[in-house]
Structure formats: structure tokens, C-alpha cells
Simulated scan of single mutants.
Amino acid sequence: MINLEIPAKLEQVQQMAQQLAAGVFRPIARKYDAIEHCDTPEELKPVAQMMAAMPRGGGKKGASDEIKNGSNMTGILAVEAMCWGDVGLMLSIPGSGLGNAAVMAVGTPEQKEKYGKLYCAMAITEPGAGSDSAAVSTSAEMDGDEWVLNGEKIYCTAGQRCDAVVVWATLGKSLGNAAIKSFIVHRDNPGLQ
């Protein structure tokens, strides 16, 4: 039988995220909707500092048989509660950009250490492909010991305020969906245009 109740150990996370949504996001949401494009909202910088101080991960493996996949559940509960406050503001918290989710989900331990604390944007949207990752035509080819990306993105979520960009590209259209990969490009990279 599936148990749909939130584990008691995670209820506090959900309550904190609900307080953030109600006390910070909702009161400033209209202000930033009207501005539309701006630097990181000042009100979110303390939120980012607080989140950076929190431990990442679900603790020791095997430490509890009560909660399976606790770090994923924690993230889902927090994001769901914050989205009620304002999705755009949730995605604008410094250090928790859309690209950060990709880094933490599929990045190597070295990438997680190097880029996990930066604010990572996501570049997937292309002309004629939208945000359909299977239709990405930006290519990635090895040149010696470096990857060369070639293509066009028409939108980069949070690109104006990021430290690094997670760029989606294909290793070859004939290889299908398995060839779609993400690459992390630091904003200061001279090859980034």
C-alpha cells in the first residue's frame, strides 16, 4: 500500500517553506511582476544565505529505514510550498537556479563541488525546439581534451544573473535521446557569447 502522508521528520521543512512563501514571496510578488526584468531581488539574498548554510543531502545512508529518498522528498515539499508563494521568485533565489537542479541530479562529485554553490542558469530553449530536450540541435564535439559547443539558444532561464550556465546539447542527432547531454559553462568563459 502507498502511504501518501508526509513523514513527521519532513513536516518542519514544509512549514518553513510555507512561511517563506507567505512572508517573503507573496508580499513582493506583484512588485517583481511589474518590474519583470531585474537583478536578483534584494529580499532574496538573505534567503540564499540561509539556504547555503543548510546541510545538503539526506544524511548518512542507511541511517533510517523510515524515510526512503528523504533528500528528494525534502526538495519536492520545499519547492511545492515556495511555488505557491511565487514560482518566479523561487527560481530567482541566488544559488538555487534551474541549472543547479541539473548539476545536483547528474553532475559528477567534482562538478557538484565546483558548481553546486554557484547560481547556475539553464540553456535549453532553441528556435524550432522550444524546451523539448529531445529536439535540441546544439551540438557538442570533443576537440582534443575540450568540448566545443555549437548552436543557438533563444532563452536562458536566469541567464542575466547567473555564475554558470548548464547548456543542453546533442552528441549526434542520429544517436537519439541518449545523446542529449548537459555541459556547464562558467559565465566568465571567453568562448561564451
Rank of each mutant, 00 (worst) to 15 (best):
V185R: 00
W147M: 05
V79H: 05
V79R: 07
T157F: 12
P27L: 03
R56Y: 15
L4H: 05
G116D: 07
E146Q: 09
P55G: 03
A129Y: 00
G75P: 07
Q160G: 14
A29F: 10
G159A: 07
K68I: 14
E5P: 06
G116C: 04
L4C: 08
Y155T: 07
I35P: 04
C156L: 10
G95L: 10
K61E: 15
Q49Y: 11
E146V: 02
K45W: 14
F25G: 01
N72K: 05
G62E: 09
A17D: 03
D145G: 08
Q14T: 04
Y32L: 10
E141Y: 01
G99T: 03
A8S: 12
W168T: 08
M82G: 02
V13H: 12
I154V: 13
I35T: 07
S96M: 12
Q160T: 12
M50Q: 12
R187T: 03
W84D: 09
D86G: 03
Q18S: 01
S137R: 06
A21N: 00
Y32G: 08
I6S: 11
A21V: 00
I124M: 13
R26T: 15
Q18R: 05
A169S: 11
G172Y: 05
K153Y: 13
M51A: 15
L44G: 05
K181D: 01
T40H: 09
P46S: 00
H186A: 15
L77Q: 01
T138P: 01
C156E: 15
